[in-house]
Amino acid sequence: MVVNLTSGDVIAIRLASEMNQKQFAEHVGISQSFLSDLENGRRKVSPYFVGKLTRKVDTGDPDLQERIRRLSAVADF
């Protein structure tokens, strides 16, 4: 299964995880500047990053999924 994430998806996942950019970048194992570039659309979300993200963030958690859904519904990414 191919997972395509947008910069808005990355922001929603980070916000739902209740972390700032620095915390989230450290948690996922990337630099804060790389995360900032992803969130601001200066870099595309690669399959490699999606792999890192899915190993570090439990997006199967119903609470996290609901927070992401709510953030996505009200945010203008």
Results as ranks from 00 to 15, higher is better:
39 E>M: 14
76 D>L: 15
38 L>F: 00
32 Q>M: 03
8 G>K: 12
27 H>F: 08
56 K>E: 07
22 K>F: 09
65 Q>E: 13
41 G>S: 09
45 V>D: 05
1 M>S: 14
42 R>V: 07
46 S>C: 01
54 T>Y: 07
20 N>K: 08
12 A>D: 12
41 G>T: 10
36 S>K: 04
77 F>V: 15
31 S>V: 03
1 M>W: 06
61 D>H: 10
17 S>A: 14
65 Q>S: 13
29 G>R: 04
32 Q>R: 14
31 S>G: 15
50 V>Y: 02
16 A>W: 01
48 Y>M: 11
36 S>Y: 07
41 G>M: 07
71 L>N: 09
68 I>R: 03
43 R>V: 02
49 F>I: 10
62 P>C: 03
25 A>N: 06
60 G>L: 10
46 S>A: 03
18 E>P: 00
64 L>A: 09
4 N>Q: 14
33 S>W: 01
54 T>Q: 02
5 L>K: 06
36 S>W: 09
13 I>N: 04
9 D>N: 15
36 S>F: 04
36 S>R: 09
76 D>G: 14
23 Q>N: 08
74 V>Y: 09
29 G>M: 07
57 V>W: 06
19 M>P: 00
49 F>R: 06
64 L>W: 11
27 H>M: 02
26 E>A: 13
66 E>N: 11
54 T>W: 00
24 F>L: 01
47 P>R: 04
28 V>Y: 00
64 L>F: 12
23 Q>H: 04
53 L>N: 01
57 V>E: 04
77 F>K: 14
33 S>D: 06
27 H>T: 02
69 R>Y: 12
75 A>T: 14
42 R>W: 06
46 S>K: 01
45 V>S: 03
54 T>G: 00
13 I>G: 07
5 L>E: 07
2 V>A: 12
41 G>Q: 05
36 S>D: 08
6 T>C: 14
22 K>R: 12
37 D>Y: 10
38 L>I: 04
67 R>K: 15
18 E>T: 05
2 V>C: 05
8 G>P: 11
15 L>C: 08
1 M>I: 09
41 G>F: 11
55 R>L: 11
51 G>Q: 12
60 G>C: 03
65 Q>F: 06
61 D>K: 08
54 T>M: 11
46 S>R: 02
45 V>K: 04
6 T>Q: 13
12 A>R: 04
17 S>R: 05
66 E>L: 15
18 E>M: 10
29 G>L: 05
11 I>A: 03
48 Y>D: 14
70 R>Y: 10
20 N>H: 06
35 L>R: 03
34 F>N: 08
77 F>I: 13
65 Q>G: 13
1 M>T: 12
57 V>C: 07
52 K>C: 00
51 G>L: 10
12 A>C: 11
70 R>W: 09
51 G>S: 15
36 S>P: 01
41 G>I: 06
3 V>G: 03
69 R>K: 15
75 A>K: 10
20 N>R: 07
